[in-house]
Design a protein around this nucleic acid. Sequence first.
DNA 1: GCCTTGAGGTTTTTT
DNA 2: ACCTCAAGGC
Length: 893
Amino acid sequence: MSDPFDLPFFDEPGGEPAAPKPAARPPERSAGGGIAARAMAARGGQTQAPDYLSGLNPEQRLAVETTEGPVLVLAGAGTGKTRVLTTRIAHILATGRAYPSQILAVTFTNKAAREMKSRIGVLVGEAVEGMPWLGTFHSIGVKLLRRHAELAGLKSSFTILDTDDVIRLIKQLIQAEGLDDKRWPARTFANMIDGWKNKGYGPKDIPEGDARSFANGKGRELFQAYQDRLQTLNACDFGDLLCLPIRMFREHPDVLAEYHRKFKYILVDEYQDTNTAQYMWLRLLAQRPKSRHDTAPQGGANRPSDRSDAPAQASAGRRDAAVSEKEPQQINICCVGDDDQSIYGWRGAEVDNILRFEKDFPGAAVIRLERNYRSTAHILGTASHLIAHNEGRLGKTLFTEHARPDDSKVMVHAAWDSEEEARAVGETIEQLQRPDENNRRHNLNDMAILVRASFQMREFEDRFVTLGLNYRVIGGPRFYERQEIRDAMAYFRVVAQPADDLAFERIVNTPKRGLGETTIRQLHDIARARGVPMLNAAEDIVETEELKPKPRASLRNVVENFRRWQKMLDNTPHTELAEIIFEESGYTDMWKNDRSAEAPGRLENLKELIRSMEEYESLRSFLEHVALVMDAEQNAEQDAVNIMTLHSAKGLEFETVFLPGWEEGLFPHQRSLDEGGRSGLEEERRLAYVGVTRAKRNLHIWFVSNRRIHGLWQSTIPSRFLDELPEAHVEVEESGSSYGGYGGAFAPGRGGNYGGGAGRQNPYGASRFDNVGSGSFSNTYATPGWARAQANKTSATDRNWGTRSGAGVERIGYGETDSLRGAGRGSVKGRTIEGELVAKSVADTPSAFSVGDRVFHQKFGNGNVAAIEGNKLTIDFDKAGQKRVLDGFVTGV
DNA sequence: GCCTTGAGGTTTTTT
DNA sequence: ACCTCAAGGC
């Protein structure tokens, strides 16, 4: 309880919170219509609370009603975060504190924005349509830029490039510099640029070291060249959508002041995911200058150009004036987030932003939501215990008031390999889907498989196809990233924005028109030399003799097509135009004539594309949408199991959740450990926490002993996170029998991948199952090294799992000691972590081997020990290269 | 200019 | 194991 990070305000969980500060000053607008009257009533007391407040618990209600001043809502998983946000907005609107257009509500993903919009719609009806400033950071950035494009050096018709465009563009630049694009991959540089922009850096701001590390030290020049190129293309990338508004606000305080006047309330969702640029963006908008002069209106010219926020009532103008003249506006920013769910550090998110909130906004109210409405006590207990291993938390503990005795514990299962894992999960799903004795059955929609890395999905998909089990992959290969869709979009882009050279280049020879590299290069050169778009260059060059007759005719045809389509743009329904373009360009024919297996699907996707265009009023607005929203709506019609990554699962919940692949190297992911060290590990742990907290009633965690990585079979060891699960809430599956027959998976030598029939040793040390069954596998225990290891065993010996044949997995017992990481390293201040479930991934005892030892491994052959970490050995094998294995797997030679 | 073949790199997560 | 890219033949 005595958490050092505990913040002063709310130290009695569940108790009646005292207001941190006067909830608010009296409402600024007095009198007036019914809305204000309702507001007064709402403020007056609980008795007359409006409906929308009635279902809230005290903490939620406080978060909703503390409308004035800075507020940080720390909302644990499943504590009604979205509800608080949406109700808060409804409350602000209903009490007349602001008009819909005066609320800036930022989310991180499009999904979240949609969700919020629809839920606000439920609360306030039509009024939600008047909220133009509800959206993602990026979409709001676009809106700002379109409006003030000239201040950012763009024309308001600018194009937004996606990752693919960016990489192609950078590649051109690298080649133009005469650099080897193999040694300096465009993708790498694109990532670097993205990283810089996440920090708000322009070419001049990047650290010298960064600049030197790429392109023979020309990183900075290349970055600058890239920005220049974007400007000539009248284009910007994703990062610019954040950086350019920031720059604009800094360089044009008058414009910033406009928005200071405009936005009365700022709300930020998933604050823990904001990166430095987003943080600066928010600070600029939220932090009003102290001096009154800065906020004072500077004349009509600076008024926001859209007047949608100018209420019709005469009182409105008065109110506006009153606010800005009487007192400097205070900062009404409300950030909602959960430090324990910060999982985007790898792309620049700064958990620190949320940890620092109170310093940034002095006097901020901090409200914790810890009452969980989603999961069983077992699941919450598991999640809390797991996340308690992290340092640097603000500290929250979820609780539920709805523990039921018959809730099932969190299940941990083992499988031989990933195929087995998929098969077993499939069987479990089928079992759940079958009607039970009460004739109730689980919907597939209520189940989800959450994987660490997308390559894990394939195995499940394969299995489900075989079983005929419906599934849907969420966030997988994105609709708008498919080749045919991108081609189609490129056609549209050239039609709508004739200067879009990247799009032009993409499709000028798709389908094949005999316009190869040579022709393109010529076009390029002319366009560059004359400073005109390539389409114009093409238009001119076909009138000359410079091209050979064939390409010349072909190119003329292309140009004529585009000119014709451009003329049709304004007087032809855009879906119709799209079909015409596909037909006349020969694009549909191209796929019709394609004999490959994917071709029909691609044609189908093109139809789907046209269908999805119907919702938009014009081709332009459609393009705008697509640039920002790379995912297409999924049809939730059909009952299907959900498969997705842990990252894309954030914010969702399911009755039953499967978490496969809890193995060292995969989860926690090796790369996170390598690149992020301790904080990388903590982020992985938060990811595990996110995964666990997605489950409402049932949670199944899996790990396998063998996994194919980069096409090679690797033996794996259970994730350390398994060590960190609390015994009290977790049950290890005893045997395969309960799910009928996959227990045989543990038979030695199965699958032929494993060096003949010698079988597999128990990687977790000896267990009482080691002597069960026939003993061909046991010979390895006779080695001297093993004997020594045995002799050194401590109480930890008892906590081991067997994975022997037929037995599946069984928990044998628990050590009485604390977790090796909990108490041993004191990873959590002032908190004892007890009763952990143990699947040893790191031995308490030193390895029986030492660096340099010559060893033999059943599968990899002979090698030398290169490094030792606990019981994990890094071995340079003569044939197989360097591998990490458990010492139990090798024998001294 | 286009297509086939072979080599080499690659796979965490995404607005 | 898979995909992308370059080289070489047509």
